[in-house]
C-alpha cells in the first residue's frame, strides 16, 4: 500500500453538517452581490514560440542529462534491498562518504544529520539524503545567483545540478517495491526516484531556469531550502 493510499484510509471522519442547507442558501442569495468584483481570471495560452523554445531546451537537456539516468535505469537490474543499518555511527560514516563525492555551493556547509534513535534504514539512504541536500543547496545558490545577476555562479550551479541528474539520481522501474535497489555496486551516492515524473520535473526545472524561466527553481528552493 503506498503512502497516499494509507493516508486516504486514515482520513478523519468529520461527521455531518448540522446546518440547514436550503435556509443557508436562501439567506446568502438574499444578499446583494458585489458588481465591482473582478471577473475570474481566464487561462491564457502562452505563445507558441515560447513553448517551442522550452520544448527544444527540454529535449536538449533530456539528451544531455535525463538520457543518462534513464539509460542507466534501463540497463541495470533492480532487486528488493533487505539490508538494513541501525547504528547511527555507521549511518554517519555513509553520510560523510557521500559528501566526499558530492559538492556544495561556496560557503554552504553540510548540515549535521544522523539516524534517529530506534530506527533502521537502507544503506543507500544516507547517500540519497546527501544527494537531496546537495541538490537543494545548489538550487538555492542558483536562485540567488539569478537574483544577483551573477551569470558565472549560475553556470556553476547549473553544472552541479546537471551532474546530480546525470550521476546521482536513478529512476526505479514502475512497479518495484519501496525497498528497491539497483543490482551491483553503485559508484557514488544516489537518490532513487519513483517512476512518477519527479525526475522529469527536476530536469525540466533545470531546463526552464537555463532558458530564463527560474520560477520553478525559486519555488523549489523556497519550499525545500535553504540548507541550515
Amino acid at each position: 500500500m503506498n503512502e497516499i493510499t494509507r493516508l486516504r484510509r486514515a482520513r478523519p471522519d468529520c461527521g455531518e453538517l448540522s446546518v440547514d442547507r436550503e435556509a443557508l442558501f436562501a439567506a446568502i442569495i438574499a444578499q446583494p452581490t458585489d458588481r465591482s468584483a473582478p471577473p475570474a481570471p481566464v487561462r491564457r495560452r502562452r505563445g507558441r514560440r515560447r513553448k517551442l523554445v522550452l520544448a527544444v531546451a527540454l529535449a536538449l537537456l533530456v539528451v544531455l542529462t535525463a538520457g543518462t539516468a534513464l539509460a542507466v535505469t534501463g540497463v541495470i537490474g533492480w532487486h528488493d534491498d533487505t539490508r538494513i543499518i541501525s547504528d547511527p555511527v555507521e549511518w554517519q560514516k555513509l553520510y560523510r562518504d557521500a559528501q566526499s563525492k558530492l559538492t556544495m555551493p561556496p560557503g554552504v556547509k553540510w548540515p549535521a544529520r544522523t539516524l534517529p534513535a530506534n530506527s533502521v534504514t537502507s544503506p543507500l539512504q544516507p547517500g540519497g539524503q546527501a544527494v537531496d541536500i546537495s541538490q537543494v543547496a545548489w538550487e538555492c545558490y542558483w536562485a540567488d545567483a539569478i537574483k544577483r545577476g551573477d551569470a558565472s555562479a549560475g553556470r556553476r550551479a547549473r553544472a552541479a545540478l546537471t551532474d546530480i541528474a546525470r550521476h546521482h539520481i536513478l529512476v526505479a522501474p514502475e512497479g518495484t517495491s519501496e525497498n528497491t535497489a539497483p543490482d551491483g555496486q553503485i559508484d557514488g551516492p544516489v537518490a532513487i526516484y519513483a517512476d512518477d515524473g519527479g525526475f522529469e520535473h527536476f530536469t525540466k526545472m533545470i531546463a526552464d531556469a537555463a532558458a530564463g524561466d527560474p520560477a520553478t527553481l525559486i519555488q523549489s528552493c523556497r519550499a525545500n531550502g535553504p540548507v541550515e
Binding site: 444578499q31 446583494p32 468584483a37 473582478p38 475570474a40
Partner: peptide, 15 residues
C-alpha cells in the same frame, strides 16, 4: 464554510 459561500456569492463574477 458559510462565510466562504457568502463571499463566493458576493464575488460571484470572480469565482
Amino acid at each position: 464554510a458559510a462565510e466562504t459561500m457568502t463571499i463566493a456569492w458576493r464575488k460571484l463574477p470572480a469565482v
